[in-house]
């Protein structure tokens, strides 16, 4: 097994092992959260595990991330997140004061987002059997969206809206982890997206076909997944994609592509063309969508591919990321 840095490696694992074994009509839709109907109530249900090194970084920490991440997965299903579970795996000897900081951060994040942590579990494993702390959170919420949302709802002509600049989270983590001397103000964008989703649904609900939060593997991976499962093509306008100068600079030095870098507080919305401007206005009016942009269009051909119109007028095929990219040029 190669390290799961997101992108194609994980994608292959899911497609090859989990999906066939657990196959059912809900799972087969391969969304970030499952949409269920229970006693007439439409619910979204999801779970996610958090492994971050370092535990604290500019703009956030693992605890806050574990709350935001699961809230966002629910929000992407068009749901209002309500209840979370928290499950911790701790390595023997993990400092209590650090744990307390993490837990406090989780509590604050939950409180600010208006969700309740209602159940949990703790395991302590022997030294060396885990790396400090792993956190799993699961969540449920009620679905606000009236129309069906998801990758299969994406249509030719849809506009792709991005709620803000990309790459902040991944770069902040990397700089913290490697202790690089890059002078920068990059901070993680970790944030709960459910209120942004709610206002979009309330204003342009019927025109929204799909939400995604481009976490691991960045927007390159999220958009490739959408292109693959919808069997459509995604054309991006490179110049329209917002990237903060600090992220751009760090990526330039490190040789990374901001499009493949993780975000924790951004969303992609696939919107019917006639609602493009209204959706953009609504997004920009929300504090988390101030830098929103229309970054591309869904088209029919070539199916399953994402490509970029570059600023010199070329078209570059954008693939998913497999770990660190190895050079393909000569």
């Amino acid at each position: 097994l190669s390290h799961g840095s997101g992108g194609k490696a994980t994608h292959n694992l899911i497609e090859g092992i989990f999906a066939p074994a657990f196959a059912n009509t809900v799972l087969d839709r391969m969304e970030d959260a499952a949409s269920l109907t229970l006693g007439g109530l439409r619910l979204a249900f999801t779970t996610d595990s958090y492994v971050v090194n370092p535990l604290f970084f500019a703009g956030g920490d693992i605890g806050q991330l574990a709350v935001h991440g699961t809230i966002n997965d629910l929000a992407m299903a068009g749901a209002d997140p309500l209840y979370l579970s928290v499950s911790m795996i701790l390595e023997e000897g993990f400092p209590i004061d650090v744990l307390r900081r993490i837990v406090d951060s989780m509590a604050r994040a939950a409180r600010e987002a208006g969700v309740l942590i209602v159940t949990g579990d703790t395991k302590v494993v022997q030294r060396g059997k885990a790396d400090g702390i792993f956190i799993n959170t699961a969540g449920v919420g009620t679905i606000r969206a009236v129309a069906e949302l998801g990758q299969t709802q994406v249509r030719v002509g849809d506009r792709i809206l991005l709620s803000g600049a990309i790459g902040d989270h991944g770069v902040a983590i990397m700089l913290a982890r490697e202790e690089l001397d890059i002078e920068t103000d990059v901070q993680s964008d970790s944030a709960p997206l459910h209120t942004l989703v709610a206002t979009l649904l309330d204003n342009v609900g019927n025109s929204i076909h799909c939400f995604r939060d481009p976490t691991r593997g960045g927007i390159a991976t999220s958009l490739n997944e959408i292109a693959l499962s919808s069997e459509l093509s995604i054309a991006l306008d490179e110049q329209a994609i917002p990237v903060h100068a600090g992220v751009r600079g760090a990526c330039e030095i490190l040789g990374l592509d901001p499009l493949t870098i993780a975000n924790e507080g951004k969303l992609l919305a696939m919107v019917a063309p006639e609602a493009e401007q209204l959706a953009l206005k609504v997004m920009r009016a929300h504090p988390l969508g101030k830098e929103a942009m229309v970054i591309g269009t869904v088209q029919a051909d070539p199916p399953g591919m994402v490509f970029l119109r570059t600023d010199i007028g070329g078209t570059r095929v954008l693939d998913m990321l497999v770990g660190d990219p190895l050079p393909r040029i000569c």
Partner: peptide, 24 residues
């Protein structure tokens, strides 16, 4: 100087520094 510093750190920490035997 600052760019070089980062590069040196990348080399030291093997951060996105694939090994190469390229004559090019």
């Amino acid at each position: 100087h600052s760019t070089w510093k980062t590069l040196a750190q990348m080399i030291e920490r093997k951060l996105h520094c694939p090994a190469t035997s390229s004559l090019g």
